[in-house]
Design a binder for these strands. Structure first.
Lengths: 235, 235
DNA sequence: TAGATTGTTAATCGATTAACAATC
DNA sequence: TAGATTGTTAATCGATTAACAATC
């Protein structure tokens, strides 16, 4: 007998990455409005504040399931709650961080991650000298204990802040420990099993984009300047 | 007399942001190949290694001005040089970093930024206790000296690693100091003059995207599991 | 030559933006 | 009512992917 498998409604249609990344911007702005005794907010207002198109915001907010009222806008409290619910900030995930160097320590000390669904419960490092230390209140364990502890504690999120050459090995350990989402700060292309989600936070990529734009803007300015000089001469 | 202003060729057609962000990935991979005595490389090969489409890579590489040869590929050394030149990594820009906290210190200690066109020459902080310290060899100056020093040293890049409430004020100081590109790590929407480029590196935005995907993937899995149970029952 | 790869043009896909009816 | 805003559909825009001739 052929069994009709229902399409899991949870899968639904994937939310566009840019929309996901704008959600926290809305959330922060709305929280600030909330402090000012407001109860309603319109897309026009959010757009003005954040420099975004109101239509785009309306479409983004639709993903959260909130309903607004024409001319009035969205109820502020309900909207904030809808965003938090949509992003899964209500059920906080425990996470392991591997690589207790400068950047790792900075993330361990990052404020308010818990408000954003992330709770870093422990750090790991290969360096014996770091093992046993507490950095911003999080204990550092030896790398050898990563797989076992991740399995036992049902850890789902791993953060990689090791140097590039060690990144793949750490990713392998995380996958072996049952971790399903990796936030990777090492400039490396990780190979992971298909069920594991990887998010690369490669600062060199961001920097490349910034510096290329700066170079281009300077070149344009220099060119404008030259044109101006030519124009003055020809007058 | 109406003067015909030539369109500055430097402006050209803007390079897509995704292409810019892939450049460093190519660069790193090619550098590694270079160590292995190779002299040529094809898009097929790069694509296989990085999990990208060869056609996309070919289009990206076209922006650097490199020319390849059918069946042979691109000359490795020339390609690396073309990428570096395209991204402006040959002329390194001096930068100021404001906010010598955890994250700021991590960036001050970030390795190889100079190889990627960025040279952080000084840090600034409002905290008197930090002023005068050297963090990873970079001296910390009081915030009050930012504008003057930026002007005198012709600094073009500013990095913001202060807490959110101070970010706008720091951006204003940077703009006043003649800085043209801001790499902003504070979760704030900065208002800057039109000539200033802002790149936001908001970790909460990345995290939101990651955790929402994880939540969705878990929901799908749970739903699959339920479907399986239903199927077993119906057999 | 045969076959793989480049360079380039066309088709597709997805996100943003515009248009507009419904409604408060 | 008049006018602003939501919700939704269509048009536009830009990036990715496919197709294919040129060529090594």
């Amino acid at each position: 007998m052929a069994v009709e498998v229902e399409k899991p409604e949870a899968a639904g249609r994937a939310v566009p990455e840019p929309s996901l990344r704008r959600m926290p911007l809305y959330h922060r702005m709305l929280k600030q409005l909330m402090d000012g005794q407001r109860t309603q907010v319109t897309c026009t207002e959010i757009g003005l504040q954040l420099g975004l198109d109101p239509t785009q915001i309306r479409k983004d907010l639709e993903y959260t399931g909130i309903a607004g009222r024409p001319k009035v806008g969205y109820p502020l409290g309900a909207l904030i709650a809808a965003i938090e619910n949509f992003l899964g900030w209500n059920n906080v995930n425990d996470a392991f961080l591997v690589g207790a160097g400068n950047l790792g320590a900075a993330l361990l000390g990052y404020p308010h991650f818990a408000d954003y669904g992330l709770n870093i419960v422990a750090a790991f490092d290969r360096d014996e000298a770091k093992v046993g230390l507490a950095i911003h209140g999080k204990e550092v364990f030896p790398l050898s204990r990563l797989v076992g502890l991740a399995q036992r504690m049902h850890i789902l999120i791993g953060i990689i802040t090791v140097p590039e050459p060690a990144a793949q090995e750490v990713a392998d350990l995380m996958a072996a420990g049952g971790i399903l989402a990796i936030w990777n700060f090492a400039p490396a292309h990780l190979k992971v099993p298909p069920q594991v989600i990887v998010h690369n936070e490669n600062l060199y990529c961001s920097l490349a984009s910034l510096s290329q734009k700066l170079a281009k803007s300077l070149a344009a300015k220099a060119s404008d300047g030259n044109a101006e000089i030519r124009n003055q001469r020809s007058e």
